[in-house]
Write a protein that binds this DNA or RNA. Structure first.
Length: 467
RNA sequence: GCUCCCUUCGUCUAGAGGCCUAGGACACGGCCCUCUCAAGGCUGUAACACGGGUUCGAAUCCCGUAGGGAGCGCCA
């Protein structure tokens, strides 16, 4: 089995509906699909599931594609680049679906349903109350053609329902969960075409995967129990079954499905905060997936180390502290030029070199910019203590030494050491706090070169003895 | 309610009956290095949800229980 998975080209797809921004969970699924296709030398297809005209927006479609591109997940077939199975927007595939609907109706595998939303709601309610699963009661399944004509004459609009075969066992081997077995008696007849003529998810999603040549459907666990419906549909149409794999969902720290209240959850939000694609991908690579590489991996090296047989079944918690770790790795690997672009504030090369090891996100650079050319915020408790412990005499000496050394930090500390007899932290910490206002931060030497001598002198003198 | 899925350190996970005194990574603590932070090196704390079986032997197999999740939509 795994030998087959490794060797033959795998065709995967990502099929988002353009009703919102790219969620991190979806991004991970897309990433796994991308990796699997790339690993096997197959193809990665992007298909837009926009049959719900009410909620679909072109803007979301473009955003989705922009975020995928930003992450570096390029597709081989898609709405913007075309391909052998075009079109790749379901809104444009109506003709194809219509032919299949006709086929199903002709073979009595689907039937028009005239039930209204209210009737269905009531029916479900009643079933729930009597302890039964809320399934379609089959009201319209056995209408005679005369009864149908009568309803049509009354101007009722019909949806199309799939006639679920009775007493069928549906079996398939999920590539993540293993063998699965469901009874068709647990499945009610479901809508495959809405009464406005558009196709419903179960239907177009399944037939498109089949006809587009997808060999591996990889999606979230929430679709596991939907799979038998889609299999029934494909079987009825005599269409090829793709393989199905369902990965555990991404959840928040509290174990609940990832949502807005967990903070940033969309790729866009992470991009805007300054997280790097390579950091996000290194993190997602290990969320619900175990690779054989321990540390950092360049994105280009990931497909070879993607192991579909090591995809997780349990829900994975998204923990930003782990993302931050990969972000640090990613920042450390950027060139100075890349960091300047990333910071986007026209900082000097010297400044960038000075602060780069103290940055996780671009916003972290702001306080250091202020240290160089702005005003210092009031000192914290620990910092006040450092200043007090050093004493005014120390800063008097420091200011004098600075008069001789100017911005040569080595020279400054050498003179100060001789004058005060201080060394180590006793020598450096007061200087650090006086010059930066903080007890932590990047090296002091380069800072003196970055800031104006006047500012440095002023900061040292401000703690000196007043005469 | 019914069907299905899931459960190993705080988090991501390794683990396919003896290789497990349960391994690694992140986070956290300590030590070293160091003016501080970061980086690096060493090191420490910390988990098989619970209860029954099967077996010479179970984190691994079976059955229950508990907890979490999904589906049962003219949403996808």
């Amino acid at each position: 089995m795994s030998a087959i998975l490794q060797s033959s080209p795998v065709i995967t797809r990502f099929a988002p509906s353009p009703t919102g921004s790219l969620h991190l969970g979806n991004a991970r699924t897309a990433f796994f699909c991308y990796l699997w296709a790339r690993k096997s030398g197959g193809r990665f297809i992007l298909r837009i599931e926009d049959t719900d005209a009410e909620r679909s927006r072109l803007r979301f479609r473009d955003e989705l594609m922009a975020e995928l591109r930003w992450l570096g997940l390029d597709w081989d077939e898609g709405p913007d680049i075309g391909g052998p199975s075009a079109p790749y927007s379901q809104a444009e595939r109506g003709e194809f679906y219509r032919a299949l609907f006709a086929q199903l109706e002709m073979n009595d595998q689907a039937y028009p349903c005239y039930c209204t939303a209210e009737e269905l709601e009531l029916s479900r309610k009643l079933q729930r109350m009597s302890g039964k699963p809320p399934r379609y009661a089959g009201t319209c399944r056995h209408l005679t053609s005369a009864e149908r004509a009568q309803r049509e004459a009354r101007g009722l609009r019909a949806a199309l329902r799939f006639a679920v075969p009775e007493d069928r066992i549906i079996e398939f081997t999920d590539t993540v969960h293993g063998p699965q077995r469901y009874a068709s008696s647990d499945i009610g007849d479901f809508i495959i075409r809405r009464d406005d003529g558009t196709s419903a998810f179960f239907f177009c999603n399944a037939v498109d995967d089949s006809v587009m040549g997808v060999t591996q459907v990889l999606r979230g666990d929430d679709h596991l129990t939907n799979t038998p419906r889609q299999l029934l549909l494909l079987d009825a149409l005599g269409m090829r079954r793709p393989g199905y794999g369902h990965v555990g969902l991404l959840v928040g720290a509290d174990g609940a499905p990832l949502s807005k209240r967990h903070g940033s959850t969309s790729a866009q939000e992470f991009r805007e905060r300054g997280f790097l694609p390579a950091a996000i991908l290194n993190h997602l690579f290990r969320l619900g997936h175990t690779s054989d590489i321990e540390g950092w991996s360049p994105v280009s090296g990931m497909p070879a180390h993607f192991r579909p047989e090591h995809l997780g079944r349990a829900p994975a918690r998204f923990d930003e502290t782990q993302l931050v770790h990969w972000q640090k790795e990613a920042v450390g690997r950027m060139s100075a030029a890349e960091i300047r672009v990333w910071l986007g504030s026209g900082d000097s090369a010297e400044f960038v070199e000075w602060v780069r090891h103290n940055l996780v996100l671009p916003a972290d650079a702001a306080p250091w910019r202020a240290v160089v050319r702005g005003d210092l915020p009031p000192l914290g408790k620990g910092e006040q203590h450092v200043i007090a412990a050093a004493g005014p005499e120390f800063f008097t000496a420091a200011a004098e030494a600075f008069g001789q050394s100017s911005s040569d930090f080595k020279q400054l500390t050498k003179i100060l050491k001789e004058r005060t007899g201080r060394k180590g932290a006793d020598l450096y910490m007061p200087l650090r706090v006086a010059l930066t206002g903080q007890a932590h931060g990047p090296e002091l030497g380069p800072l003196l070169k970055l800031m104006s001598p006047e500012t440095a002198r002023r900061r040292l003198e401000s703690y000196a003895q007043h005469s």
